[in-house]
């Protein structure tokens, strides 16, 4: 099992998306929906999956989370440090990785991107997948029963639905106006290195 070498332009995109998610958490940089304290960071997670694809998207988020664990205050509200990973929202952060993979796989699997299908991909990856990891971990950390935790997390659902719609709008618009945004071509080097024997 060899990890394929990361091409330089992919490295740059992975780094920029990790930074983009960090910037979406800066106070004042993006004030989504007025005064409601909704962080825009999971919007970045959905876009990373859709634009970088499942694996580079997941790498981008993993890199961000490692930097957060090392103590950089890159999460919304300037949060960072190992403490974040034992707090109640730890599972949602780990869920970001799964979320990017799910969004990436679904958006890639769509032959023709339509509004509805991309929105389904964003909801399944950006909400369902993230909650599926986040809620059990929150329940484990706070020892609150799963059903009660689920109920508590519904507070964030309206904001997350808006973000899924926003991510869909951006993806659809970029597909038409800036198709270079989507990383679809496999660099020649990576294809050669993986060396499929059947070819």
């Amino acid at each position: 099992m060899a990890v394929p070498r990361l091409a330089t332009n992919d490295l740059a995109r992975v780094a920029v998306f990790a930074a983009l998610i960090a910037v979406l958490g800066l106070p004042g940089a993006v004030n989504l929906f007025g005064a409601v304290p909704v962080t825009a960071q999971s919007l970045g997670v959905m876009l990373a999956g859709a634009l970088l694809g499942p694996w580079l998207g997941a790498l981008s988020i993993s890199v961000l989370l490692v930097l957060v664990a090392l103590g950089m205050p890159l999460l919304a509200g300037g949060r960072g440090g190992l403490g974040v990973f034992v707090g109640p929202s730890a599972g949602y952060l780990l869920g970001w990785i799964l979320g990017a993979v799910v969004v990436g796989l679904l958006v890639r699997a769509l032959g023709r991107r339509t509004w509805a299908s991309v929105l389904v991909a964003m909801v399944l990856g950006g909400i369902v997948a993230i909650y599926a990891v986040g809620i059990p971990v929150q329940s484990a950390v706070t020892r609150l029963p799963l059903s009660a935790t689920l109920l508590q997390s519904l507070v964030f659902l309206p904001g997350d639905l808006l973000k899924a719609a926003l991510a869909t709008a951006v993806t659809m618009r970029l597909a038409r106006a800036y198709p270079r945004a989507f990383r679809t071509t496999v660099p020649a080097g990576a294809a050669r290195q993986s060396g499929h024997p059947e070819r």
Partner: peptide, 24 residues
Amino acid sequence: VRIFAMTFTVVALKHADQLGEALA
């Protein structure tokens, strides 16, 4: 918010292209 998200994403992607070239 939609226009901002769209513009910012394109600006970030262009920055990534420049960054990749600079690294190379």
